[in-house]
Structure formats: structure tokens, C-alpha cells
Simulated scan of single mutants.
Amino acid sequence: MNDTVTSNDGTPISYLKLGEGPGVIILHGAMESARSHFELAKALSDSFTVYLPDRRGRGRSGTYGPDFSIRKEVEDVDALLSKTNSHFVIGVSSGAIIALNASLDLKAVHKAIIFEPPLMTDNLISADWVDRYDREMSAGNVASALVTGMLGTQMGPPSLQRMPRWFLIMMTKLMMTLEGSSGGTEGPIPMKVLAPTLHYDVQLVIEMEGMPNDLLNAIDINILLLGGSKSPPYLKAAVDRLEKAIPNAKRVEFEGLHHGATGNKNRGGQPERVASEVKSFLGLE
């Protein structure tokens, strides 16, 4: 079922709803949309009512607006929690940055599951690539911009970092051609359509860079930290930092999985495995 909630600044936030039980909101990451975690939602739907929002700038949701910040994303979550009477939040990647801030600021959040937020910890990654990505997007070189983003965020197997750039661009163009240019109602939004949203996800990462441990120490709810054993070192370091800083944090690492662990199976996810840990943490398995 599709529905919409209006955020504090009037922006409509579209979401999918499935299942029955206590409400859980899943916040997707960069280069994703509501449908990217549909299989995880389905695996949870026997115990929960699951809400899958399209974050700002995606699908039927409204645009970012001129003063976009993490505060806007947290206000979107607040509106969803209020309308659905939900108290559990799952945040994936950049969505996990939003979930962390919601856990700190919103009393309606009673428990949160945080999967590999891309925090710039221990100088293991930087955002130096963003200017190049923005130039390539402005010039209409979408495939090249996506390769810049993929390399900059260290996504995919390490072997990709060693491949010639021209080859990666060629393969990305082929993948975009196979996907098509517009998303249907039953599948994720194509890469070409999502490409401009990456700029704003990186904006959240940069905004979070200076978040002091004192704020993380102030998160007073139970947190489940999730990660994959094959994820990039900077993501593991981010989870390490959260585990040390958040008082009521439990950590689970999925052996053999990577940053796509929570996603649909066609993107390398194992949603049933993740759902089992979520249910256990929320007391329903």
C-alpha cells in the first residue's frame, strides 16, 4: 500500500506499508529508494507493520529544498513516526546517519537498528571526490559521476578500485541501459534517476563529520549496530566508534556479507538473516 505524510516544512514523503504489528520504519541509504529493502520488509512483515519511505528527492516524495540538512530528514522521520504511531527505526548507510540523529532527538524512537553509517572516522575516507562528481553531473556525464562516487565511497569489491576507469564507465553505461530510465511501481528506481541524489547523501556525511562523542554518549535508548565482515574498513571503523560511544549498544557482524547485506537479494543482500537479528533485538524472536 502506498501513502504519503507531510513533513514539517510541507514536503510530502511517500512510503510503502506492509505487514501487521508494531511499526518499524526503514530508512534506505544512498543510491536507493523505498523498494531497495522490500525483501527485508517482507521478512519482518509477519511480526511488524513496516514502513518504507522514499527519502527526499526520490520517487513520489518531495524535493530537498534550498535549506536541506540532516534536520530536514529527521523532521521527515518525526512526521512518519507520528502518523504511523511507530517506535522502531532501521537506518541503512546514510539512512543510519538519520536514524542516529532521530535516536538522539526524537522521544518517539524507542529502539533503533543502525547499519554501517558512513562516518569519516580515523581519516580512512574523505569527501575529496565530491567536486569531481558534481562537475561530471553538471556536464551530463552520469556514468562517469557514478564511477567517481563508487570509487570515492569504496563500494564494491576491492578489485574494482584497480580496474581501468574507462572500463568501469563502459560497464556503468551498459547497466544503465539495461535498467532503463524510469522506475516502475514494482522495482527500485534506476541508477540514472538516483544519480543526482548522491550529492545530498554526501552532504549528510560531511555534516556528521564533526559530531562529537558527547552526543553519541547521550543516546539513551537500546541500539543494535549491524555490519558486514566484508565491508570497507572505514565502515567497520565507524561501527567500532559507535560501539564504544553509545551506552546501550549491541553489535552483530554478518560473516561473509558486505555493505549491501540489508538489501534485496539481487543486490547481494540476505534479508532473512538480517530480519532474524532485528526480531531478536526487538524481542519478537
Rank of each mutant, 00 (worst) to 15 (best):
A143M: 06
A218K: 14
L204G: 06
A261W: 04
P212S: 14
M150E: 09
V239P: 00
D9R: 09
W166C: 08
R58F: 05
G269W: 05
A143E: 02
H259L: 08
E272V: 03
R251Q: 14
P22K: 07
P158G: 01
F68K: 00
R35C: 06
L282E: 02
L224D: 01
T6N: 09
R162N: 13
T4D: 12
T4F: 14
Y64C: 07
D54C: 11
R58Q: 09
A245W: 00
H110Y: 09
E207Y: 02
F48P: 07
L242I: 09
I114Q: 02
A275S: 13
S7D: 06
F88Q: 05
M137N: 06
L226P: 03
L104K: 11
S69C: 14
K173C: 05
A261V: 12
D78N: 15
K244E: 15
L16T: 05
L40F: 10
G183Q: 12
D67Y: 10
E272A: 15
M175N: 08
L198C: 05
V50Y: 03
V205E: 04
T84F: 03
R132N: 14
H259A: 08
S82F: 10
E179V: 07
V24Y: 01
G180T: 10
R71Q: 14
A238H: 01
F68H: 14
D220E: 15
T121Q: 11
A43G: 02
M175C: 01
P158N: 05
T11R: 04
G187S: 15
